[in-house]
């Protein structure tokens, strides 16, 4: 059985990610996934977005927005798989898959934001 303390750590990540996802992510997906493609709002230019993304504050913001919510996903998805599909015997595999995915995404966002 996993040590009692570790779950507390993952739960903190889950909660922090939940807050970030609740406050910041809807507007991002709304703009880039819905409003711009449908032409409801004018698509910003490449140069504008690049300058924006290069500002230090935006880099920090984007890193937070990409990393924590992934750990939020990892936690919830892990439990949904356990409970919804009753696949307890795959416990470890699911754990590695979820948190591994979150880690890869986090590293990727760090790399992109450093290079941009």
């Amino acid at each position: 059985m996993s040590k009692p303390s570790n779950e507390g750590f993952f739960w903190l990540l889950f909660s922090a990610g939940g807050v970030v996802a609740a406050v910041f992510i809807p507007v991002l997906l709304f703009l880039f996934g819905v409003a711009f493609p449908l032409g409801w709002l004018p698509q910003p230019s490449y140069e504008h977005l690049l300058t924006l993304a290069r500002s230090p504050l935006a880099r920090i913001f984007l890193f937070v927005v990409c990393s924590l919510p992934l750990f939020h996903w990892a936690h919830r998805f892990r439990f949904t798989l356990y409970d919804g599909l009753q696949v307890k015997h795959l416990n470890e595999a699911i754990f590695v898959l979820c948190y591994g995915g979150a880690l890869v995404g986090t590293l990727l966002s760090g790399y992109l934001l450093l290079k941009i």
């Binding site: 880039f32 939020h72 919830r76 949904t80």
Partner: peptide, 29 residues
């Protein structure tokens, strides 16, 4: 609980956007 999948997907979209910004105007288009 499945909203978390949408959250993860939104992060993927954001990462795709950032990658296109890194690669240049053509990638952004």
């Amino acid at each position: 609980e499945l909203t978390s999948v949408a959250v993860a997907w939104s992060v993927v979209v954001t990462l795709l956007l950032l990658r296109s910004l890194l690669k240049g105007p053509d990638a952004y288009a």
